[in-house]
Design a protein around this nucleic acid. Structure first.
Ligand SMILES: [Mn+2]
Ligand SMILES: [Mn+2]
Length: 349
DNA sequence: GGGGAAG
DNA sequence: CTTCCCCAACGCCCG
DNA sequence: CGGGCG
């Protein structure tokens, strides 16, 4: 049996299963605290102080234009993260952050910051680590609530880049990420690769959820429920990436070196390593249009889908209509032993 | 973006 | 008080 | 070891 046929057969089965479940499962998820939030910052004052979670927080440079082509300011960005906080927090709460800072907007100089030791307010939780680069003990910042989310945003972090694991179980990711990074590809090819990944995972009865990256690609998340370590997540990602690549060799690649990819889409599974990150769900991106990494229904992942359709201007409206459709990634993790057995029986290991 | 030194 | 300057990642992988 | 990579 070749892998494609196996996927086809199982596609039919799983489609039926999903249809039956749909009427039961399609209840809209209620996100606590998300109803009718007022705006956090007024449209005029350049500096404003707000008490959030008991902390007096000062927000500065609020009229600084972060997205010049779209005339979106730092104030707009902070108001967005305030509004989206109830939706984004379940995915970032208690996760150490890689800060990707744009203090002068998306066209200004940018830098990464991991260590916030002695720099963040004392109420911002941190996670200690040792840097082998310079032999010093340092601390990641951790988002724990609305205040710490807004704190990192106020530093110019347009993107929210959380670890896949929480401080409680730092070695055990909540999910495995398949990151589709197109190069000289059409977006239809990205969609095709995502749908093939979905079919393949359906065939081995592994749940998966898709979102736009907000940039050019798509992210597929598989719930791991902190049951395994990063090495296991990465190796599972590698197996899936190889299977997808084997079926779409014409336009995908799993080569790490860019020049070895010859313009093909990179199926990036290496973000499933300790401390590696991608922009989380509902994160803004430092790109023209002020796009948002937006969770999708699988039936939206088809030609016609456009990443630029999901932006700071409409993300909250979509959330109010649809609710949070990404909660599945927070569900119970897959059974890796069972899954590996299914892969072996269907695809010959 | 923020802190500290210099002007 | 304003202006200037400086600082703000990391670890794996491969040749 | 240095450079590429995301
Ligand atoms: Mn990507
Ligand atoms: Mn990537």
């Amino acid at each position: 049996k070749n892998a494609k046929d196996v996927v086809r057969e199982n596609e039919v089965q799983t489609v039926d299963v999903v249809k039956e479940q749909k009427t039961l499962v399609e209840k809209r998820v209620i996100t606590p605290g998300a109803k009718e939030r007022k705006s956090l910052l007024n449209p005029t004052d350049e500096t404003q102080v707000r008490n959030i979670c008991g902390h007096d927080m000062k927000f500065t440079n609020l009229s600084k234009v972060y997205w010049p082509k779209d005339n979106v300011t730092k104030r707009d960005m902070l108001n967005y993260y305030y509004q989206v906080a109830p939706y984004i927090l379940p995915y970032v709460k208690d996760k150490p952050q890689t800060l990707n800072r744009y203090p002068n907007g998306i066209e200004g100089k940018t830098f990464y910051q991991k260590d916030v030791k002695g720099k963040a307010p004392e109420w911002v939780k941190t996670f200690p680590y040792h840097s082998y680069t310079d032999g010093r003990d340092k601390e990641f910042s951790v988002i724990t609530d609305e205040a710490s989310l807004l704190y990192v945003a106020s530093l110019g972090c347009i993107e929210i880049n959380p670890w896949s694991s929480k401080t409680q179980t730092p070695d055990n990711p909540d999910w495995c990420i398949i990151d589709l990074d197109p190069d000289k590809n059409t977006f239809e090819q990205v969609i095709e690769a995502a749908c093939l990944t979905k079919s393949l995972l359906d065939a081995i009865e592994v749940p998966c959820y898709c979102k736009t990256s907000g940039s050019t690609g798509l992210h597929i998340y598989i719930p791991f429920g902190a049951k395994y370590d990063y090495e296991q997540s990465k190796e599972f990602g590698r197996v899936i990436a190889k299977l997808v690549h084997a079926q779409l060799p014409e336009f995908t690649s799993i080569e790490r070196k860019v020049s070895d990819r010859s313009g093909k889409m990179y199926i990036d599974f290496l973000q499933n390593r300790p401390q590696a990150t991608v922009a989380g769900p509902y994160s803004l991106r430092p790109k023209p249009g002020a796009p948002v990494s937006m969770p999708l229904h699988w039936d939206e992942v088809k030609p016609g889908l456009s990443i630029r359709d999901f932006t700071i201007f409409n993300a909250i409206d979509r959330l109010k209509e649809q609710g949070d459709i990404f909660t599945g990634v927070l569900g119970e993790g897959i059974d890796l032993n069972e899954t590996v057995k299914k892969i072996e029986s269907l695809f010959g290991g």
